[in-house]
Amino acid sequence: MLEPETRETLIAQLSDPTALPAWEEFVELYQSVVYRVARNRGLQDADAEDLTQEVLMTVARKVEDFDFSKNGSFRGWLLKITRDLVVNKLTRDTKAMGSGDSEVLRLVNQQPERDATRSTLLLEHRRALLAQAAERLRPTIRRETWDAFWLTAVEGISISEAAARLNKTEGAIRVARCRVLAQLKKVIESDDSTFSL
C-alpha cells in the first residue's frame, strides 16, 4: 500500500492546503474499497493488492492536474476518476482485432461487467463509510448500548435473547439499537457530502 511519505510528496505540489487531508481521508477510505471490489471481481489477494496500489498511485499522479479554481469538488473528482479507473482495470479486455463492428460488439459485451463492477463499487463505498463511522462512534458510547445494536443488527441475535444477555428490557434494546444506528448515520452525514451514503 502507499507509504504516507509517498502521498505527501505526490500531493505537496498542490496549491490548495485543504487537499492533503482530503486526499488522506480518501486513501484511507478507498484502499479497502478498491481492494474489496477487486476481490469481489475474482482477483487473488496479491493481485487485488497490486491493483489497489496501482489505482491509487495513478490517481495520486493525476491529482497534479486538478485545478482548484474551476474543477469543483476535489473529493467528487477523486471519487470519479478512481471509480473509472477501477472499472476499466477490472473489465476483462476481450479486444478482438478487426473491423469497427467487432469494436462495437466488444463494448456491448463489456457493459454487464462494467455495470457489475460499478454496483460493487457503490456497495463497498457504503460499507467502508459505515465501518469507518462505526470505528469512530464505538469508543464514544457505552458498551451495552453498542452491544444492543451489534448483537441484534450485525450478529442477528433476537431482541429477547440480547435483552437476556445484557440484562436489559426488550424495550431498552430496541431503543438503544435505534440510537446507535441514528448516530452512525449522523457521523457519516457530518463528513463531506460527496462521501455520503
Binding site: 465501518a131 442477528g156 439499537r177 448515520k185
Partner: peptide, 15 residues
C-alpha cells in the same frame, strides 16, 4: 435511508 437490516449486513461482511 439506511435501514437497520442493511447496516447490519454491511457491517457483518466487513467484520
Amino acid at each position: 435511508g439506511l435501514t437497520m437490516k442493511e447496516a447490519g449486513r454491511l457491517l457483518q461482511q466487513d467484520s
